[in-house]
Computed example of a mutant assay.
Amino acid sequence: MQVSVVSANRNLIGLRGPDPDDSYIAPFLVRDVRGAISECRPFFIRMDPDPMPSCCAGAKSIAELTKTKRDEKELCMCLRYIVQLHGPYDPKRLALLGGNATLNSLPSFI
Results as ranks from 00 to 15, higher is better:
Pro107Ser: 04
Pro18Glu: 11
Thr102Pro: 00
Asp19Thr: 04
Asn9Pro: 01
Val83Ser: 11
Ala57Val: 10
Arg46Gly: 03
Glu64Asn: 14
Pro53Tyr: 03
Phe28Ile: 04
Glu72Tyr: 02
Ser108Tyr: 03
Pro88Thr: 11
Leu12Arg: 12
Ser61Gln: 13
Arg93Leu: 07
Thr68Met: 01
Ser38Thr: 06
Val6Tyr: 04
Ala95Arg: 07
Arg31Gly: 00
Asn100Cys: 05
Met1Ile: 10
Pro51Asp: 05
Gly58Trp: 02
Ile13Glu: 03
Arg93Val: 10
Asn9Glu: 08
Leu94Gln: 05
Asp90Tyr: 10
Ser108Leu: 05
Asp21Arg: 09
Tyr81Asn: 10
Val5Leu: 07
Gly99Thr: 05
Cys40Ala: 06
Ala59Met: 10
Glu64Arg: 15
Pro107Leu: 01
Arg41Leu: 12
Gly99Trp: 02
Leu97Met: 08
Pro49Val: 10
Phe109Lys: 11
Tyr24Leu: 02
Asp22Gly: 13
Leu75Pro: 10
Gly14Ser: 02
Pro27Tyr: 00
Arg41Pro: 00
Ala36Ser: 13
Ile45Leu: 08
Asn100Ser: 08
Pro53Ser: 11
Cys55Pro: 11
Ile62Glu: 07
Met77Thr: 14
Cys55Trp: 04
Ala57Asn: 13
Cys76Ala: 15
Ser61Cys: 07
Lys69Trp: 05
Pro107Trp: 01
Pro53Gly: 08
Leu75Cys: 09
Val30Thr: 15
Ala36Leu: 04
Val5Cys: 09
Leu29Phe: 03
Arg46Cys: 12
Leu96Phe: 10
Gly99Gln: 13
Arg34Val: 01
Thr68Pro: 01
Tyr89Asp: 05
Leu79Ile: 15
Gly14Arg: 02
Arg46Gln: 10
Ile37Tyr: 05
Gly98Asp: 03
Tyr81Thr: 14
Ser4Tyr: 01
Met1Ser: 13
Cys40Asn: 08
Lys73Arg: 14
Leu85Tyr: 02
Leu75Lys: 12
Pro91Arg: 06
Pro51Phe: 02
Gln2Glu: 12
Met52Phe: 06
Thr66Phe: 00
Ala95Ile: 01
Arg16Leu: 10
Arg93Glu: 04
Pro53Phe: 02
Thr102Ile: 14
Val30Asn: 02
Arg41Ala: 06
Ala101Glu: 13
Tyr81Leu: 15
Glu39Ala: 15
Thr66Trp: 00
Thr102Ser: 10
Ser54Gly: 05
Asp90Trp: 08
Asp90Lys: 06
Glu74Asn: 09
Phe109Ser: 08
Lys92Glu: 10
His86Arg: 13
Leu97Val: 06
Leu106Asn: 09
